[in-house]
Design a protein around this nucleic acid. Structure first.
Length: 580
DNA sequence: GCCGTTTTCGGCCCGACTGTTTTCAGTCG
């Protein structure tokens, strides 16, 4: 009877979110900072889990995770099994929701939010803005005129930009700044660090690192760049600005000798750095952005490779530096040999004017050939996708005739006949088998009815994967970064199904998708499935998005051997036929 | 709250910059 009350188990994202909120409440309440960190750490561990959380709880495996002790294990178990955490609910009572929003404001941390709440009863962003404009913050101890102005600026920034940017946008801007600075005669070395170097799918700011003998001159040059709107911090080694498009940029200036250490430091992630410094410390070495030190002696390293080597580790590529097991793997020399752009031999998931693409099949094919690809898989939308001009059955044969014609005269690149079939709400595909068999390959994607329950959506997708003509599952979660959340789906079960039925899963390279999420990479690898890095291009320009997918694949620990489109055309054709 | 090749208690990564302070707390990465 009581079991009926439990509607569903809490998933890892929900659990992580609550652990994170608990840590924030602790911070506001001035709780022991190490206790705060333990909760933050736990949130991150749970979020990055590749094993199934529910199974882990049931097998009492939580406690074996480094960073999860008896207390947190019990809390997480309670959350997963009952969907609630009594202690948390008690804490939340009396903590206004708005305080969490206030913490998002740059320059406002838990101490100040706590003070505002206790002293001035400010409990939301709206109240805060009002209080600033009424000049009421100055009277508070620890606050002043400038703090008030800074908060107002932070508020403005948050409202306008929500604080995050797509990787692709930030990368383009970062490259522009980098090139502008590299042209300066006093710049010896310059590199983009931070989350852009790590290929995170969204980023908060740009980190630029420069080696020079004239830090003041370089910093001055930087703030005088035409992109710069305002300067938010200006010191000896660090300068922060906001660009006209809202992006924040941190410039760090070091000596040439310090450059490798600084590059490592400012590439992060913060969690990777914490783990690295802790490891160094155990070896009696202090690690900071200026060097590795044994006592006062600098351990000389000419690049990052030597820094890792000094600490007994293989070089860890930036994409892997998320403290998700890469340090342990580097210690055992078991890091993956990550895929590179050059390994990609061909591409699937390309649209043309036959559905909602802008360019013809011929144009797409010739562009792909120029990019050095050996094959291109055209996959226009299927008949139900009326919004996208999906292919009616009678159009398919015409399209195939056109492809045959181009293939005949065009050597050096083979066009494969594919389709992106909608997965209908009941899990069936958008054409009968007699039509599906006309294609070389079939990508299946969800484009409608996103609001299903997780169970139904998972069932729907798995049913579609069971169809013998299915080759590739397209953008598996349907998310649009910074715009639309993923639909509810149990990716664990989907990956299991991919493994069971021999279906490849797409890493969609569109900058707003980057879906499969890299966080599922390790689990996917453990199941031995194939992924395929596809542009989902709707124009010739879109073909070059493949580079973003490669970045995400690297971040997901994928190697050449895991990626379908690293095979040559005959191997690929073989792969597609194998399922039927 | 977690953890143990210094430790079951006493640690827990490290530094820059700002603003409000007269020596440092708060915030950020």
């Amino acid at each position: 009877m009581e079991n009926l009350i439990i509607s569903k188990f809490m998933d890892k994202h929900e659990v992580a979110q609550i652990l994170y909120e608990v840590s924030q409440i602790f911070e506001i309440q001035g709780e022991n900072p190490f206790r705060v960190r333990a909760y933050q750490n736990a949130a991150r561990i749970i979020e990055g889990l590749s094993d199934d959380l529910e199974l882990l709880v049931k097998s009492e495996g939580l406690i074996k995770l480094r960073g999860i002790g008896p207390n947190l294990a019990a809390h997480i178990k309670e959350l997963v099994l009952t969907g609630r955490l009594k202690e948390y609910e008690q804490m939340l009572r009396g903590i206004p929701e708005g305080l969490f929003d206030m913490l998002k404001i740059h320059g406002l941390g838990p101490k100040k939010v706590g003070a505002l709440w206790r002293e001035l009863s400010i409990a939301s962003i709206g109240e805060l803005e009002y209080a600033c404009k009424e000049n009421r913050l100055i009277e508070l101890p620890g606050f002043g005129e400038k703090t008030q102005t800074k908060i107002l600026r932070g508020l403005e920034f948050l409202k306008r930009f929500e604080g995050r940017y797509l990787y692709s946008e930030a990368k383009i801007m970062a490259d522009e700044l980098l090139q502008a600075m590299q042209r300066h005669k006093d710049v010896i070395k310059a590199e983009i660090a931070g989350s852009i170097r790590r290929c995170k799918e969204t980023v908060k700011d740009i980190d630029l690192l420069i080696a020079t003998k004239k830090p003041k001159v370089v910093s001055k040059k930087f703030i005088s760049l035409p992109h710069v709107d305002s300067v938010t911090a200006e010191g000896e080694t660090k300068t922060s600005v906001i660009l006209y498009n809202g992006l924040a940029v941190d410039l760090r200036v070091v000596s040439e000798k310090e450059f490798p250490y600084a590059l490592h430091h400012f590439t992060g992630s913060k969690e990777h750095n914490v783990a690295m410094r802790s490891l160094a410390k155990k070896q009696g070495v202090k690690m900071n952005e200026y060097g590795l030190f044994k006592g006062t002696e600098l351990l000389k390293c000419k690049d990052e490779v030597e820094i890792y080597k000094r600490l007994g580790l293989a070089f860890i590529p930036p994409e892997l530096r998320e403290d998700q097991g890469e340090i342990e793997a580097a210690r055992k020399d078991e890091l993956p040999d990550l895929i590179t752009e050059n390994d990609i031999k061909g591409i699937f998931h390309v649209h043309s004017t036959w559905s909602d693409g802008r360019d013809s099949i011929e144009a797409m094919a010739s562009a792909a050939k120029n990019l050095g690809y050996k094959y291109i898989g055209i996959s226009d939308h299927s008949q139900s996708a009326q919004y996208a001009g999906g292919l009616q059955i009678e159009e398919i044969k015409k399209q195939h005739k056109e492809i045959d014609k181009i293939n005949k005269r065009n050597k050096g690149l083979k066009i494969l006949k594919g389709v992106e079939s909608d997965i209908l709400p009941d899990g069936s595909l958008d054409y009968p088998d007699s039509v599906l068999e006309l294609f070389d390959f079939v990508i299946i994607s969800v484009h409608s009815q996103f609001n299903m329950s997780e169970d139904r959506m998972t069932e729907r997708i798995i049913k579609a994967m069971q169809n013998p003509y299915t080759s590739i599952l397209g953008h598996p979660t349907g998310r649009l970064l910074l715009a639309r959340d993923a639909y509810a789906v149990n990716m664990h079960k989907v990956i299991d199904a991919a493994s069971d039925y021999g279906v490849a899963i797409e890493i969609n390279s569109h900058p707003q998708r980057l879906d499969l999420d890299w966080r599922h990479g390790k689990y996917a690898k453990s199941k031995g499935i194939k992924v395929t890095i596809n542009p989902d291009a709707h124009s010739v320009e879109g073909l070059t998005d493949v580079k973003y997918g490669v970045g995400i694949a690297r971040k997901g620990w994928f190697e050449k051997k895991d990626v379908l489109n690293c095979l040559n055309v005959s191997e690929v054709e073989e792969y597609f036929k194998k399922r039927r």
